[in-house]
Structure formats: structure tokens, C-alpha cells
Amino acid sequence: MNTSTSTVIDAHKVSRTFNPETIPVLAVDDVHLHLERGEFTALVGPSGSGKTTLLNLLGGLDKPDKGIIHINGVDITKLPANKLIDFRLHNIGFVFQSFNLIPVLTAKENVELIMQLQHRKKTEIAERVKILFHQIGLEDKVNTRPAQLSGGQQQRVAVARALASKPQFVLADEPTANLDSKSAANLLDVMAKLNVEEKITFIFSTHDARVIERARRVITLVDGQIHSDTARVETNVPHEVDKLKL
């Protein structure tokens, strides 16, 4: 297995089948994936291609039937449930399609919650919150509840929450799916900036060409298998993605 100190994710022969007893659906089929620190990767593919399932497996939200997944050198498929929750808390940030902020907490409290779960000191939490809200450009919305924020603002708070725990990488499941163009562009700017400035690894599943445009690596899934894996330096949409007519 190819692992180095800069390896964040190393998935080997990972498979996941749903309903194995009744009507088996092979959502992820024998996937090999290797992500280095600082990558900005888009996971693309048509609906039902296994993007979300693969993200869930990489994030330790689901367990593969076969294969192993190393995150920062730790085989998360072997971790017991409670250890896995703790591992996620300290190593992985999540951004969900429908924001999933806690409606009864303010934007700031949503971000603080993660650090409180980590038992961080109050002063440290306050400092981190200040930095994160500056990075997402919502300093004036810290005490606002999610219902009073726009979709784009909510998703930016979700990004701040994902980064609050200082994770090695952030998994984002269709982060721009519910956003208008401007909000999506703003969010991508924030994520790209964090990726460049803080070397945070981002991997996001998406259908959105605007997101794919900004990715430096595009992995295409078809029927649960990696169809193509293209690293790019230029900003053009990769050839393989074009072919799939996403």
C-alpha cells in the first residue's frame, strides 16, 4: 500500500453492497483511492454512481463490506463505533448538501459546538471562531440563527463548522446543490482559499460544473467504480467529465 506522511486517504479494494439479502445493490465496487494532503478533489458521476456512499465510507459514516480505508495512517474500518466517532471529531470535517446546521443555535454556537465536543479551552474556541468567521466572511452574522441566514451563508457556516476541529480533510457532499450561482461561487472561493492557505484537503461529490471547474483533481465514478481519475493544473473542464455530460 502506498502511504507516506503526506497521505491523507488511502482506500484499498473498497466495496459496499446495500440489501445483500434481498435485492443487492453494489454501490461502491472495488475502489482504490489515494489522496495527498492539500488536494482539492471533485468526485463526479451520474446519480446513483456511488459518490455519496464513497464519501460516507471515507468519512467513517458507513463501513465497507470489503477493503480497508486508512485515514492519516489509521485503518478506520477496524475502529469500534465510539472510537470512530472520536476519530471523526478530530480528523474529518463534513459539509452536507442541506447545510444541517442546528436551528436552535446561532451561527457561532454551531461552530463552537464541535470544539466544545473536543473539550477545547474557551479562549481557544473564541479565537478560532473569530478566525473562521473572518475566513468565511460572516463576522457580522455570528449571533444569527440559521433560519435568518441565506442558503449560501448557511453553507459557509457549515464550512466553518467543518473546519472548527482543525481536520486533516473535509468531505463535502454536493455542497453547492442548494445554492444559487453567486452563493456557490462565494463558497467555492472560501473553500479554495482555505485549501491554498491552510493546506486543508477537500473532497467533494458534485454534479455542479462550477465546482468541477475549480477542482484540481476530478475522479469520475460510474456504477460504483472509478471510471477516470484526472489531475489538472489548468482551469478547463477535464475531457472525461465532458464526455459524461454531467
Partner: peptide
């Protein structure tokens, strides 16, 4: 359900 699942995903352990 979704919110509790999200909290667990983010790292809130079961006793909490």
C-alpha cells in the same frame, strides 16, 4: 433523526 445523525457524524458520541 437527520439532525441527531448529523451530530453523531460530526463527533457527538453516543453517551452525549
Amino acid at each position: 433523526t437527520r439532525e441527531i445523525g448529523m451530530l453523531t457524524a460530526l463527533g457527538m458520541n453516543r453517551p452525549r
